[in-house]
């Protein structure tokens, strides 16, 4: 059984995203520990990429700060190894296909497996191109997470039926970033997904407030938050971890009892 499933065993799941190395890897490490203590069920660790085409301005900024601070894939692997001495919740990497491809997919997945990562999210790797990495992911027990978007429509059955780990439901058109309103009919998308798989579905993109998280978790199995957390890192820098912890607690509390 995929380790990721554990993230969905404590009521509705709260999934937290953080860009590794923003402002530095020590802060990332402390923030992840705070996230776990505050009740996060799964952490998405972003490996920064120079040209993150699926990200809005907030996460683009985090990518840039992290790269300017000298963050590399190897240093992130080293950090995860340290984190795993304390943190036990499931963790997945979120990055872009070229980061994995240029590192060497085999070497990348083997290291992921060695240091205790559970999955991988690549927003520029749609269903049609999964073959690029899928066999190697399976070889090292790394779940390759599938995304389903508001425009997926007739593709939902195909994607959901062959998905693994959990389904990342993209709440809205466009790129990542906080939104005042989410208007997509997500419950019908989730219904269509559930007709094709027993995997849990979590909704991300645009969620920042406890009310939004509640609304999203109400129609799915969890909420994913990125940009709102990155804004805390941007505001508090090295002092961010405790603020991140407080924020994660408020979000998890809002959805725990659904």
């Amino acid at each position: 059984m995929s380790n990721i499933k554990r993230a969905f065993g404590n009521g509705k799941a709260f999934i937290a995203f953080i860009t590794c190395g923003d402002p530095d890897l020590e802060t990332t490490m402390e923030a992840v520990k705070e996230m776990e203590k505050a009740g996060a069920d799964l952490v998405e660790l972003g490996i920064p990429f120079s040209d993150p085409t699926a990200e809005g301005p907030v996460i683009q900024g985090a990518n840039l700060r992290a790269l300017n601070a000298g963050t590399t894939t190897d240093r992130i692997f080293g950090m995860v190894k340290e984190i795993r001495k304390e943190v036990t919740i499931p963790m997945v990497f979120m990055t872009y296909a070229n980061v994995v491809f240029s590192y060497g997919a085999e070497k990348f997945m083997k290291t992921c497996s060695d240091i205790g990562m559970d999955g991988l999210i690549l927003p520029d790797l749609p269903f049609e191109e999964k073959g690029e990495f899928l066999d190697i992911c399976h070889k090292y027990d790394i779940d390759l997470i599938s995304l389903i978007a508001p425009t997926s429509e007739n593709r939902i059955a195909m994607i959901a039926s062959q998905a693994e780990g959990f389904i990342y439901v993209v709440s809205s058109l466009g790129v990542t970033g906080t939104r005042s309103e989410i208007t997509t009919d997500l419950s019908s998308i989730v219904t269509a997904i559930r007709e094709n798989t027993d995997l849990p579905c979590a909704i991300g993109f645009g969620i920042s407030t406890p009310e939004q998280a509640k609304k999203m978790a109400d129609v799915s199995d969890g909420a994913i938050v990125g940009s709102a957390i990155i804004k805390i890192l941007e505001k508090y820098g090295k002092d961010a971890p405790k603020h991140v912890g407080e924020y994660v607690k408020s979000m998890k509390d809002a959805i725990r009892q659904l």
Partner: peptide
């Protein structure tokens, strides 16, 4: 190939 976000696939 087509290495793009799922959001654009149907387009």
């Amino acid at each position: 190939g087509q290495y793009i976000p799922e959001t654009l696939m149907n387009a």
